[in-house]
Design a protein around this nucleic acid. Structure first.
Lengths: 352, 352
DNA sequence: AGAAATTGCGTGCGCGTGCACGCAAATAAA
DNA sequence: TTTATTTGCGTGCACGCGCACGCAATTTCT
């Protein structure tokens, strides 16, 4: 609690106590201009004794400095994963705006390397004081991050990262562990004999496979704990619900023993139609990520559990933390933030 | 994105556009002093057209107004539930300090009504602009809230609340639902035939029983879904680990069939000693709240799952939201915040 | 020794608001 | 009509800090 006898000290108080002028205090605090060693010590002592902290409101008012951050993330449709990430960024930006933080967004096409290159260049043209991105195209992102290193521009990764780069900050889940958690949930109720792992067809132009680590976490867990269990893989087309339906009908007709279904990408909602047409009280379905549509599936009982983190929270925390560290010119306390994985079931869905 | 041609408008811009002086703009914005209807309209229009928002940094600098909030919560030892709540308050206060928010804390003894009365009076003496409390002693809290209503002082409840009062804000979990969730988790793996519900002995002076709703959620769920299951209640003494140990030994010796153990208060860690001495791979143990010691028990495998919310998050959000609404003099968007219940197991514990 | 450059430091101004003071015009009272 | 009162409104100052200007004292160069 603030001692009411001693009101909050200002530069004037520090200057007076040190026997110098405000300007000198200013020079000492911000290493601006030349100061004799003697006055420097006096000022530092006065700052220490008075516990002086600059008034951030006055400081920002006088400085009028803006901090621009550029984000390079995949395009999205309303309600999709990257849309939620985007919402988190916007929320954080609104909160930080009074501290002079500005945001510029760049969306690229995940299936098109060139669009990533274009957007990363556009981001540089913004002359930002920090860049936030994800890492779908490993080679290009690595190259880009080297460019940023040379420019001395700090950058942060969201959702996934490239360990070999000098990123300042990372927020995301540990994808491998989240896969394990999903497999654990799937097998919690009774041991699986056969599992359907549903995957998405992707056109050949898409080189990246961002879900690999999570899928491996999933299958490794199953193989380790249930060595006799077979994992069947089915591919469905995310753009064609009709063919998806046919594929699933056919697949499950051929494998009537399957009671466990998992999907390691964020689109478990694509199964809704099939699941609703073929109810099975014994079936267990596990998916990932708290998309609106996924939550609906849990609510309706088609999906037993989702593994997720609060998606917008993740990007909100990243921007807040990143901005804080850039503004204060201090490295963040922690570099890697593997955010907590939530387990969502119909029992704890209401207030998410 | 901010249009760079039109820099952020100031009162001067508004005044000029409305053809009046800064003082007049100020008067209409804050309903201070007298203004002719004609100028009022002109100013309001200019504000609208320019999308004028006062610069919060300049505003706070000039105003120098402080907002004091007083919290009245139970005493605690390091690492206990209310300690975590307290940490959340402190964290929020640190973040809000530059907006002029100050915090004053009052701790009372949960077993002593008089200490609550003393602390609530002390809180009033602070002359705060808002009060945060929990509701252990229903009658006394109800009386106190009536007093606050008369004074026109807004108050918020944390953790639990009294519906009949005119509280401005509430953050907490739905205790009944959390009890249900705990029971669901306990019975997830295989249907329970016998359950041990471990409770704490409380001295007769303690009238309040804050865990009742949660316990009822728990037992109701079991009775509804497993009508043939018997729920045994065991009382242990939280202050005497030796007697606790004896009680548990005796109880479980008499009921060798029990594979399900639940505890609806926050002290599942009190069972650690017993559980570690009597390992049982089939046993399922469910507790509540993410106390450090509870997390350790999950990590070591003694406890299968915890139902919790991130405790400090809850108080942090409450203070942030409450301060925001008091400062802006607007009612909060939502009054009741039943925060999300997390499910914690050894699979998703690492980054909590 | 005188001129030129460098070092150390004090001061003034502006950032955008909030608020109090006080002036002029309009109205009411004498 | 003169004086008192009210209404409407403009202006000045302070908030605490960042920054630039410029003066005086000291050192370096010719």
């Amino acid at each position: 609690m603030q001692n009411s006898n001693h009101p909050i000290p200002t530069v004037y108080d520090v200057a007076e106590r040190a026997g110098v002028s405000r300007g000198t205090v200013d020079r000492v605090l911000y290493q601006r201009g030349r100061v004799s060693e003697q006055s420097r010590q006096k000022v530092l002592r006065a700052v220490e004794e008075l516990q002086y902290k600059p008034n951030s409101n006055a400081s920002r008012l006088a400085r009028k400095k803006e901090y621009l951050f550029s984000c390079i993330i995949p395009q999205f449709n309303e309600g999709e994963y990257w849309g939620e990430i985007n919402n988190g960024f916007l929320e954080a930006a609104a909160l930080l705006s009074e501290r002079g933080v500005r945001l510029r967004l760049h969306f690229y096409d995940q299936t098109d390397v060139k669009s990533f290159l274009a957007e990363s260049n556009a981001a540089l043209d913004d002359k930002p004081c920090g860049i936030i991105m994800n890492a779908v195209f490993r080679d290009e992102v690595t190259l880009f991050s080297q460019q940023l290193d040379e420019l001395g521009l700090p950058y942060a990764f969201i959702d996934n990262k490239i360990d070999e780069t000098h990123y300042a900050l990372y927020y995301g889940v540990d994808p491998y562990k989240s896969g394990e958690l999903g497999a654990w949930l799937l097998s919690l109720r009774f041991p699986p004999k056969e599992i359907a792992l549903v995957r998405l067809l992707r056109d050949s132009s898409q080189r990246a496979d961002p879900n690999r680590p999570r899928r491996h976490g999933f299958t490794d867990y199953i193989n380790k704990h249930f060595p006799d269990c077979t994992v069947h893989t089915v591919f469905i087309d995310p753009k064609d619900s009709c063919s998806t339906q046919k594929t699933l009908e056919k697949f499950f007709a051929e494998h009537p023993g399957i009671r466990h279904i998992g999907m390691t990408n964020s689109r478990i909602y694509l199964l809704e139609k099939y699941l609703s047409k073929h109810p099975d009280p014994e079936r267990i379905v596990v998916g990932f990520d708290d998309l609106r549509k996924n939550l609906d599936c849990v609510k309706k009982g088609y999906v037993s559990a989702l593994v997720t983190r609060h998606i917008p929270e993740q990007s909100k925390l990243l921007l807040t933390d990143f901005a804080e560290s850039v503004i204060s010119r201090r490295a963040p306390k922690r570099r890697d933030h593997y955010v907590h994985m939530d387990i969502l079931t119909r029992m704890n869905l209401d207030n998410y």
